[in-house]
Design a protein around this nucleic acid. Structure first.
Lengths: 207, 207
DNA sequence: GTCTATAAATGGATAGAC
DNA sequence: GTCTATCCATTTATAGAC
């Protein structure tokens, strides 16, 4: 009836993810989702076979999301021309805001953070999305920075680990809660900036 | 009837926590808990007013647990006599094993990691237990190490942040999943050792 | 302190009208 | 594509026997 009805299926997926991210899959009822979407319980079965199918749809779209994120890494990678402290910290904050706090990624991360304890598939996706992809991407960047002699020779995987641990930690500490408001994002960004500065001075050459 | 019946109330709490840590509070039924304990559903109401009361009991005991953990920090604190790389890394691994992987703490952390997204009280406890207590404790230790000139002058809070971020990251990456087996603990310990070495060389004086 | 029985509410899912 | 009505399983919780 209304103009938004062009895609109820998508809205179901979005609202479901929002609720799963808050309470976990099992704790959210079909009724809860339908209430948010604004349809009756039975209508949801026109779009999805059952509750599990909604979760599957959400999980299946992570594959393409993963590729999108890898592409982003490569874009950053291309841009490296020189390295100085302020820009270095800004890139780290940009990773927080563009990847972990990304509109699509953030609720997905929260949901996976819950489901990883009972769902093997969720655990595997969490591993890839939150550890493998960022660590590999970052390692590649540090390797390149070394080749161009922007930073001291060192073990790229160790640098990537120490670098990303700070970002992940700031994210967990400030953003993984009931609601991540603007002030929390700012605090996370601040912590990354402060702590990344020390890290940066450690990896650039002594003078 | 059996000898273990001395404290059914405690067993209920333990089994409940084990299940809450896996599936989350809402997704675990009274039936599930009773099944694990080995009693009928109605019997649980003799020990606890309702399901919420079991969760409250679990959360309330975290206060004393927090104090216990603070005491441990102080014990480490007293022992600092000298600092060399291997011992420094061993202390970090000991923190992982004695605090985060502690028999009581580990299931509690998992449960809180789920509930923090929907329960404000759980979120506050997670903050204290996983960020505030470790960061403050570690900051104090670095301050002392500086006073005794074991490490270079620096900002203690930044050192504590960079130090603990590595431990927390290794814990999240390797241990927060359906089951943390011996091999996962070893991998986490290995990652901490490797990455802490670099951190250590950065904070001790140049020669 | 644990049991059987049962009430009352909630949740997943289907049938069939419009 | 959404609705009303309904079914059946699960879940929380209580009453009362032993």
């Amino acid at each position: 009836m209304k103009e938004e009805n062009i895609n109820t299926k998508l809205k179901i997926q979005q609202e479901a993810l929002r609720l799963f991210a808050q309470r976990g899959y099992k704790a959210v009822s079909i009724r809860d989702i339908c209430k948010e979407v604004g349809i009756k319980e039975s209508s949801i079965y026109y779009h999805y076979k059952n509750k599990q199918a909604i979760l599957d749809a959400i999980l299946n779209q992570t594959e393409e999301l993963m590729d999108q994120m890898k592409t982003r890494f490569n874009q950053v990678f291309e841009k490296i021309q020189h390295v100085e402290e302020e820009a270095f910290c800004k890139v780290a904050v940009a990773f927080l805001e563009g990847y972990l706090l990304n509109e699509t990624m953030y609720p997905l991360i929260k949901m996976l953070a819950i489901e990883r304890f009972s769902d093997q598939k969720a655990a595997a996706i969490y591993q890839k999305l939150l550890f493998q992809v960022p660590l590999e991407g970052q390692e590649k960047i540090f390797k390149e920075m070394m080749d161009r002699q922007f930073i001291r020779e060192d073990e790229p995987s160790v640098l990537a680990y120490n670098y990303y641990a700070i970002i992940y930690f700031a994210f967990e500490r400030n953003c993984l809660m009931t609601q991540c408001e603007a002030q929390h994002k700012e605090q996370a960004a601040l912590e990354i900036t402060i702590n990344m500065s020390k890290f940066f001075r450690g990896i650039t050459c002594h003078d």
